[in-house]
Simulated scan of single mutants.
Amino acid sequence: MRKITAGMFIAADGVVESPDKWHFPYFNDEMGAAVTAQLGTADTILLGRVTYDTFVGAWPAREAADADDAMAKSLGDARKIVVSRSPLEFTWRNSEQLQGDLIESVTKLKAEPGGPIALSGSVSVVRQLLAAGLIDELHLFVHPIAVGRGLRLFDDTADPVPLKLLSSAAFTTGVLHVVYGPADQA
């Protein structure tokens, strides 16, 4: 069975919305290596439409400008499955829209042969897959900033999601890379 990992930039107060407004001062080589290990090694990437739009606005151009950009090439080469209720047209290679119910489709995808499946951002998708027990590793990059306002990974309507700490590391910027798995996972 394929492993599903999800990566989220998150503020100390739980905000995950608009990391482009607060994340970059904390990005360094340590975080780059951790993000590459989680996202850049996957052969399939699940993305919500908003995250896909953000990625397609940056990564194809980076790959075209620098053929040696390993992360840009990896993302371009990966199968990208976009979760959206609206019909979509794609300009980035290897992109397709998820067909059918999210949980059923991801359960089938996880059972297919292949390598790791990764998510980046895509809060609503991560929430649903966590609730369904389909995420094997939740990589939280906890930034030392309280944003105050914005969408949080877990809101007031969320049911409890028991998690077990798999690993943690502190980066020199003060960012904590915390990896959780399902509480019943060894």
Rank of each mutant, 00 (worst) to 15 (best):
V16K: 05
A170E: 13
V126N: 06
K108Y: 04
V106S: 04
V147Y: 09
A78Y: 06
G181P: 03
F141L: 09
V50Y: 07
A169K: 15
A65V: 06
D53K: 04
A170N: 11
E17F: 00
E96Y: 05
D13E: 02
L165W: 09
S86Q: 15
L163C: 07
L88V: 08
V125L: 06
V161H: 14
R62K: 08
D69F: 06
P25N: 07
D29W: 06
H23T: 15
H139R: 09
L39H: 03
A65M: 01
W92S: 02
A67N: 09
D66P: 05
P113N: 09
K3C: 14
T41Q: 00
H143E: 05
F27H: 11
F171V: 08
P144W: 02
E104R: 08
M31Q: 11
P19E: 02
R152M: 07
L98R: 01
V83W: 01
F9I: 11
A6L: 07
R149A: 15
A58E: 15
G133F: 02
Q99V: 05
S86G: 13
L102N: 01
L75V: 12
A169V: 01
K108Q: 13
F24Q: 15
R49V: 07
S124T: 12
N94E: 07
P116G: 13
A78D: 12
A183R: 06
P160V: 08
S168T: 14
D69Y: 14
L134W: 06
H143K: 10
A65Q: 12
M1D: 15
F27G: 12
R85I: 05
K73F: 14
G76F: 08
G174W: 01
A12N: 03
A72S: 14
G115R: 01
G148S: 04
V125Y: 01
S122E: 01
P162F: 01
D77T: 15
L151R: 13
H139W: 11
P162K: 03
V126T: 10
K110V: 05
G114F: 02
S167N: 13
D136N: 05
R49Y: 00
A131K: 10
A158Q: 10
A67E: 13
V147H: 11
H143V: 14
E112P: 06
P144I: 10
L153A: 09
T173R: 04
Y52H: 06
Y180A: 01
S167G: 09
T44Q: 00
